[in-house]
Design a protein around this nucleic acid. Structure first.
Lengths: 245, 245
DNA sequence: ATCCACTAGTTGTAGGACAACTATTGACTA
DNA sequence: TAGTCAATAGTTGTCCTACAACTAGTGGAT
């Protein structure tokens, strides 16, 4: 099946692996939007798992907005096209998202320092006063063009130093993956800002207008891992949110 | 149990009713954040339903970010208390959200007309060309103070005329409730805009800066019900999104 | 042409069983 | 004394089988 979860240990639950695979098949257009996918019994035999597991997997996809499960009728692929998989509901790294949109992701590092935490960072990351943090300022690139400027603070108090060194150059999420502590939840806040001090280079907007995504990422045990402010430039990125009842 | 679903017909599934009730109990602080709630078997006996039903209900709450289910250990209440019910993940009317934040909601009507649909509206609402729509321009009030300006287009092609008349004055969501066709899904897009033509009155911002929430609401059968653009004034509203894997 | 009982197929819920995992306890060891 | 580890009780994950509830289509009766 080769899910992303399997790539770092194969610890994902059976339900998760099934869910990931059906999701992949839907995004690969195995079924057209509006079309009915295989029944739960059929899927359970082909995957060689119980119907309970398939049901749980499908419920996840339903909540993600990918499918619509209709009692007595079947499970249908929703017609939101490629909008959903790039939405804000799913927690993904910027690189992953850009890559899924069909662009070549990139990062341009401006600052990568270890320094004492500020008061704001101590509060957001629930740190002790003397703690040091890894602070990054980067431009997020899609096909070589800047789409956002990111100001990230990473809680390194419980990270090995070689992993921290790696983060100074490569993807933060990928580095966290190697020690199996990728964030599983983030609380994000969106705002519109006009700020002359944000961004750099020739590609920053003249009207100083940005869409700010401010978020704290949490590990599985609830510990805050990263506090990041990402300033998106207007029109270069689409922010989609699926809202459900 | 008195869930919102029961109030208009009681057609909600058993799982849904259980899920709603446990959610209510969590938000009512029956268990403190971080605390372990009753086990699945215990819940299944007290609710007099099968463990399957309880599990499915809890899975929903987990996806909504309310609880954390840990294999072999138990189900724990997450610490995002106030963020969840007012976040963008949950589909609620503006009035409901404002009310949950502790303010007195209100609406100031500027325009409420029935007129032919524009090309954009025909596309967003998947209408036939000659269709008429209900168009509203309103200021959203919290404690009498404007927090946003809303430009809404409602698909009235399959609505009785008395309900449409009601919408011209009261809450759109409430009117849709009376005929059991409240939207269950919305696809929202967020953007930052500077626009001199948005808003009115003394409370509109001088810098013309707004956070735009542009969304299409869908009914249970997938039919588009409403296309709305809401322009929020900076700092008067918090946009929270819970992101999960 | 309309209505309606019937039916095959599908999802929803039930109950019982066992596997996999977690956290705690308490005996054993260095 | 402090640390290690096996045993254990409790909890969630998965499986199996069965039936209830619902949907969409079929085909006959009116």
């Amino acid at each position: 099946m080769n899910t992303s979860a399997e790539q770092f240990g194969g610890r994902a639950s059976l339900t998760r692996r099934i869910s990931d695979d059906i999701r992949r098949r839907i995004l690969a257009k195995e079924w057209a939007p509006g079309e009915k996918i295989h029944s739960e019994s059929e899927l359970s035999t082909t995957y060689k798992v119980s119907r309970v597991t398939v049901r749980t997997a499908l419920k996840t996809l339903e909540y993600q907005g990918l499918v619509d499960i209709r009692h007595g009728s079947g499970t249908y692929v929703n017609d939101f096209g490629r909008a959903i998989p790039t939405g804000l509901n799913e927690l993904r790294s910027m690189s992953e998202t850009i890559s899924e949109l069909g662009y070549e992701p990139g990062m341009e590092y401006k600052i990568a320092d270890i320094r004492p935490a500020t008061d704001l960072e101590i509060e957001k990351l629930q740190l002790d006063s003397p703690d040091s943090v890894l602070y990054l300022e980067r431009a997020v690139l899609a096909d070589g063009k800047a789409v956002a400027f990111s100001y990230d603070t990473i809680n390194i108090s419980s990270l090995p130093s070689d992993v921290v060194e790696e983060m100074k150059r490569g993807s933060v999420f990928a580095s966290l993956d190697t020690i199996n502590s990728r964030p599983i939840r983030a609380l994000a806040e969106v705002d519109a800002v006009i700020d002359k001090n944000i961004g750099w280079g020739s590609q920053r907007p003249e009207d100083d207008l940005f869409l700010l995504l401010q978020q704290v990422h949490y590990a599985g045990d609830g510990e805050p891992l990263m506090y990041s402010r990402t300033y998106f430039m207007k029109g270069r990125f689409q922010f989609l949110i699926l809202r459900t009842r």
